[in-house]
Simulated scan of single mutants.
Amino acid sequence: MSEGRATIGRMDESWSGDGADAHLVIPADCIAWCRNQPYAETVLEDVVEVDLDWWNERLAQCEIPAQVSGRDADGTQVWKGTAYLRRGDLEPGVHGMGLGDEPELDRLYMCAAWLAEHPLRGGVRRFVDVRSGRDAGTPFAAVERALVACRRAPALIDAAAYRDWSGWPVAPGVGHVLMSLYCWAIHSGAPDRPQLLDAASAGSLTWNGWLVASSVSHYSVRRYVRYNSLLHRWAAQAGVAPELVEMWLNRQWHSRLAEAAVRDGSAL
């Protein structure tokens, strides 16, 4: 299988939405915050605690050939108990975090665990079942095809078989958010690296003038490409990494919600 380095970039204007979004300029507060954040600490060291037993017991019960691992307090890789999982650990070739016999399924489930346990990324532990009920003999064929589609070049905008109505690769149990994080993880170093499709970040973009308003679960690939293109363009305007722009948007959303809750409480 060929795994290209190009991702969702090199799209024309009709895909990226650059024409419709050209008037949008990165907020000054975003620039100030992002320029004060060290990428390695803010992004790669974004750590969650993961209950490895909860995940791995369910993987074993479902006979899914994957394992979730993390690090203990000393940084050693472990597969049992409570562990720490860094966002940087989701990338390939990370020191001290070797994956198993099915590395891409391992990576996918580690992405799922990181999202589920992260307080600003959902914080709801839900098991992802990637088995397909259509063919008992090859229960993982669909998800394996989807992961190949994510890894090759071009990844998501390449119109091909095994796509659903919105253009995403068909992958049982894998939503758009999880697929976007998997794409982010495996395309480390790519100049047009796919960014995490986060509901809070997308909502914050609408507060900042982006004329797109729908649940990220209903995003087509075309809309995701547009979201990604805007993050990259804002990052270029500020001279920062697009991951930091996305994180600022996420935190802005939660900050506004907290402020609204305080106002509502004061009004009682």
Rank of each mutant, 00 (worst) to 15 (best):
S229Q: 13
A202F: 10
R263P: 02
S14P: 06
L147Q: 01
R121S: 10
C62L: 13
R233L: 12
S204A: 14
V68A: 02
Q195I: 09
T82R: 14
A142Q: 08
L105I: 04
Q67A: 01
S132K: 04
A202T: 11
L257C: 15
T42C: 07
R163D: 03
L249T: 00
R222S: 08
S69I: 13
R152F: 06
R223K: 14
H176Y: 08
G88E: 03
T82V: 14
H218N: 12
C183F: 13
L120G: 02
E144S: 09
L85P: 03
N56S: 03
G75I: 09
G70A: 05
D192R: 10
L249W: 02
D135H: 03
P139K: 04
E104H: 15
P154V: 15
G70H: 10
P242Y: 01
P119R: 13
L181N: 01
D74M: 14
R134M: 11
G75R: 09
Y109C: 00
R256S: 09
W168G: 02
P169I: 11
L244Y: 00
P27Q: 08
Y84R: 15
A241R: 12
L120N: 09
S214E: 15
P154C: 13
V240A: 02
R71P: 03
G88P: 07
P103E: 02
G209F: 02
A60Q: 12
N208W: 06
D198W: 08
C30V: 09
S14F: 15
L178A: 05
G9D: 06
S2D: 14
R163Y: 09
S215N: 09
N208Y: 15
T42V: 14
A153S: 14
T76D: 11
L52Q: 04
